[in-house]
Design a protein around this nucleic acid. Sequence first.
DNA 1: CCGGCTATGGTG
DNA 2: ACCATAGCCGGT
Length: 733
Amino acid sequence: MVFWPSIVVATPAHSGVGATLTYRSELSLAPGALVRVPLGSREVLGVVWDCPDTPPEGLTEARTKVVAGVLEGLPALNGCWRQLVKFSAQYYQRSLGEVALAALPPQLRELDSTQLARRLKRRAKAAAGVPPTAPEALQGHDLSAEQAEALQALAAATAPVLLYGATGSGKTEVYLRATQAVLETAAPENEAPTQVLVMVPEINLTPQLEARFRERFEPAFGAGSVVCLHSGMTPAQRLTSWLAAHTGSARIVLGTRMAVFASLPGLRLIVVDEEHDPSYKSQEGARYSARDLAVYRAKVESEALAAGGALLQAGPHPRPLPEGEGARGGGVVNPRCQVLLGSATPSLESWHAADQGRYLRLEMPGRIGGGALPRLRLVDMNHQPKGAVLAPPLVAAMGERIARGEQCLVLLNRRGYAPVLACHDCGWKSGCPHCSAYRVFHKLDRTLRCHHCGFTERVPRACPDCGNLDIAPVGRGTEQIEEQLAGLLVDVKRPDGQPARVARMDADSTRLKGSLEVQLAALHSGEVDVLVGTQMIAKGHDFRRITLVAGINADSALFASDYRAPERLFALLMQAAGRAGRDAAQSGASEMWIQTWYPQHPLFVTLKKHDYPAFAAEQLTEREQAGMPPYGFQALLRADARTQQAAQAFLNIAAEQAAGLPHRDQITLYPAVPLTIQRVANVERAQMLVETDSRGALQRFLSAWQPVLHACRSAPEAKGLVRWAVDVDPLSI
DNA sequence: CCGGCTATGGTG
DNA sequence: ACCATAGCCGGT
């Protein structure tokens, strides 16, 4: 056995050789150090993972290359961060290097040492330049009894906390107070200042939250103590925020799912707002759930703190938390990292975990100011005039609201004017030539747009197949509802005598930078009376004067084949309903209208009672009987290829080659099937469901399958395969 | 007969 | 990931 000091580095290379590559170095390096290493003909960023005396079997010193340099002045990524990355790579079946590099700001790859030194200097100066004033007792609002109780329970909690709070119950204030408590806890000498991570599902929701956190914490903790981290920022901004978090000058990081990987050496609290939201699940690269990783990360950080942070800094895995450790009598609690999951309609996974006692459920059923949740009114479309898009009673109700100076929200989850354009003579439809989907008719710019691949053309003047001039929109989108409502409300006057104004807010109307803010301002100032929009308007925004919310087309989700569709519909409608009646002065009279052909559907019956617990219990019973998550465990093997045949062939060969792998007998491999939208951008898509009742079996099976899948890539039957991927804990199957 | 683009392989 | 190399169609 030869002994020489080798440096194991996680690099972007991720096929063939393995998860890490081994180098030599004259420099003394420790795990977590950021280095530049030669890889092929280039030099890439890498993370030092291990520094063993005995290099991997069969690798000679002469065959290794030398570490090119260290990113000087940057503290090493700590053991908790590395453990999070390692776990994510294993759990979601990706290479260590891929996950590690994806977790770092892309700009870090291009920085040379002088640029980095300049940035770090600027950081230090900025941090020193803003002396934090003594934290005031930050006035905030008075807490409701429910909020105070939740905070008290949170302070003593040792398990992940599920904050089940109605829309308008003041969850954000709880986040702010919990953050404040953490930031005011002085970190021991030689330890990083305490930090908090707050995640939201969408970029759109960050500005509002950022404003509240800045207002609350910057006076005490200095400018720059609150930073954001999301994909909408420029690479330079992301690097700045990342460095601030990594060096500890940022105390609060607000961000989307990617923020779960931020380097936070003093992390003591992770908040996951709207924890049920599907946006927390990544859909490319490592398909991680930021919510699940938040729970895992808090556990790892807690264990490290319990074991003594210094031990972990360079050490291997954190030690497990001893039984009963964490909370001590009299409310004195050991240093730990908490995780707080908040939602008015928690995910069934979290709800189930709370049922089992793995999470602590805290409830805040009441709204701040005592306002009632809006009354649900179901409009039976069977009894409306034929062809009516908007039921006359709904339009009348909206008119009354507007006349009283109140606002309305109309929800339709489909942008554009109409989902299809069709020829009534020959049956032509506006299909996309590259996808198995229709192109959507956008009337405003006279285009047909494919919402899957982006292919856009001007609307043809006549039918492309038969020349008939009579081509017409079928179905409706937000543009059409906006247009129709403007017509239907034309005689309605606001209290100031002005005619009613209708506006639309969706991905199209907010595409330009700053236009979301402009639109929200128009609504807040009362310029707009009716806002038509996609689910974007249902999420998070604080609309004060809205007293009527209407769902135009909820039925499509009622009978969707996706078993999570009811859960998503319930959450969306509850969330939308929550936009109404937030202003206590106008509460009591607020309403949520839903147009449906199935008013007796059980989902609406529970929704009417705002009874999420009943809905969850019923859904969980169904899931248990069917062996579905959270009782069963799933993964998807996805394949993209030039032909459907090749995609399915890859999946079928992969299934055949799985014979004899560990736990194969506990795993069900379903037949390969095309995706609902089979072809996107001329790529055929297929998938295979992997199901089992044991998470451990699934993990071990998938790990053993991985090399087999790599090998199946070159099977002759699978010629034309573009790419494949494993999706662990998929959200839609 | 050379050059560009796409599939395939390798990186310590 | 990214780069290098090998394999398939077009121009002069």
